[in-house]
């Protein structure tokens, strides 16, 4: 064999590298394969193509960070509920803010029988996490309507922005809550609850009042605390519901209808 031919395998490996995770250029790279971008919008499109039931049932789970084995067990447990329409991930999808972690969690959650939507958590904002989240899942603040409900997702990870007053974006939230011509019940979903130390103290009152003063907001959903919590925290008619982590092997099954809701804790 001519010496030059010895380098053929090397050259051909280079050739096949662009679309293969065999090669890692940097842990913080954000290289997505087909079907790994804009997941929230895609999953919403899949959801709204189904006719909404009068009574809507869905699952709230969260904090999958570095609990892949447990997250797989969650999917097995969640798939036993044949009456749910979708699953919400309350944030901290990743532990280290790496796109590789987002891909692993997507590999797991795409085994759900129903679409899933996410909200960004503080761990997802580490390093190149914000870039990876935007490319893979979409905007950090977004909303969708389904049946008699509007679901509003907002980034509340204030500490990651040095409590600079920009997060959560209360102006965006005010506009979203005001944009409700059909008077749907609205559910605000975020990672960090407003009464948590990682939420901007200067924005807590405004955020809480936006929810509490709106007659169509009865419930708001969170993660972050790795334990269940449920209560009318500000005594203003809004129920603050927190799900636990995948590590604690628990999630919430939530039933909503016009004007009412029921929350069930499930361990797997």
């Amino acid at each position: 064999m001519k010496p030059v031919l010895r380098f053929l395998p090397f050259v051909s490996l280079l050739f096949f590298s662009s679309c293969d995770s065999l090669f890692l250029y940097n842990p913080n790279q954000v290289t997505l394969h087909n079907g790994e971008s804009n997941l929230n919008a895609r999953n919403i499109a899949a959801l709204v193509s189904q006719p909404p039931p009068d009574t809507l049932r869905f699952i709230l789970m969260g904090d999958s960070q570095r609990w892949y084995d447990e997250s797989e067990d969650f999917v097995k447990s969640a798939n036993k509920h044949r009456d749910i329409s979708f699953v919400l991930h309350a944030g901290d999808i990743s532990d280290f803010g790496l796109s590789q972690e987002f891909k692993w969690v997507n590999r797991i959650l795409s085994k759900l029988h129903v679409p899933y939507m996410t909200v960004i958590g503080n761990h997802d904002i580490v390093a190149n996490g914000p870039d990876a989240y935007r490319k893979m899942f979409g905007p950090m603040d977004y909303s969708f309507e389904y049946g008699s409900h509007k679901f509003i997702f907002i980034n509340t990870n204030s500490r990651e922005y040095a409590f600079d007053g920009t997060v959560p974006d209360v102006n965006w939230l005010r506009k979203e809550l005001a944009d409700n011509p059909e008077n749907k019940d609205m559910i605000v979903i975020a990672h960090i609850p407003p009464y948590d130390n990682d939420f901007d103290r200067n924005l807590e009152k405004e955020y809480g009042e936006l929810l509490g003063n709106n007659p169509n907001v009865h419930m708001s959903l969170y993660g972050h605390q790795h334990s269940f919590n449920d209560g009318e925290y500000y005594k203003d008619g809004v129920r603050y519901v927190v799900t636990t982590s995948m590590g604690a092997r628990g999630y919430l099954k939530i039933k909503v209808w016009k004007g009412g809701q029921e929350v069930e804790r499930i361990n797997f």
């Binding site: 490996l13 892949y68 084995d69 797989e72 692993w104 797991i108």
Partner: peptide
């Protein structure tokens, strides 16, 4: 592989395989 992948693998040997955390350099 690198530290963050190793710790992810060690704690999730059910879901992750060595192939998930290894990469090739030439």
């Amino acid at each position: 592989t690198y530290d963050l992948m190793l710790i992810s693998y060690v704690q999730n040997t059910g879901f992750l395989t060595p192939g998930d955390i290894l990469n090739l350099a030439i």
